[in-house]
């Protein structure tokens, strides 16, 4: 999210929302792959359903980054309707990383619930 001259209040809210979404995006991608391998279009479908991303272009750099970090690996598979597809899956490191993220997420959710109730 960027604004050309001076960020106004609504832009700031948008920005915060984007930051929040961004934080959980990687976690969600890993979660999707937990249940088995998938190719980008499938991942996109699920993310779009959750309104986590709007455009598909966002996903590709993320996948590349996760793969380069050693959390994901992929294999090629021929497709009937187009070029060969990359099927992504979690590596061992990826699985461990995801486990850690899950605990962190649970803690965060608890913390948020607590602070909300405290109000």
């Amino acid at each position: 999210m960027y604004c050309n001259l001076i960020c106004n209040a609504s832009m700031k809210i948008e920005n915060t929302k984007a930051q929040m979404r961004k934080g959980v995006l990687e976690y969600c991608i890993l979660s999707i792959l937990k249940s088995g391998e998938a190719y980008p279009s499938e991942i996109i479908e699920k993310l779009k359903a959750g309104k986590l991303i709007v455009v598909e272009g966002t996903l590709y750099p993320l996948l590349t980054r996760l793969k380069n970090a050693g959390l994901l690996s992929y294999r090629w598979e021929e497709s009937k309707s187009g070029p060969p597809r990359k099927y992504y899956q979690l590596t061992k490191i990826g699985e461990e990383f995801l486990k850690e993220l899950e605990t962190t997420w649970d803690d965060l959710v608890k913390a948020v619930k607590l602070t909300r109730k405290a109000k």
């Binding site: 960027y2 920005n15 961004k22 995006l25 709007v54 455009v55 272009g57 966002t58």
Partner: peptide, 9 residues
């Protein structure tokens, strides 16, 4: 999507 739309990432 255009690059501006995924700038934040």
């Amino acid at each position: 999507g255009k690059p501006e739309q995924y700038l934040d990432e």
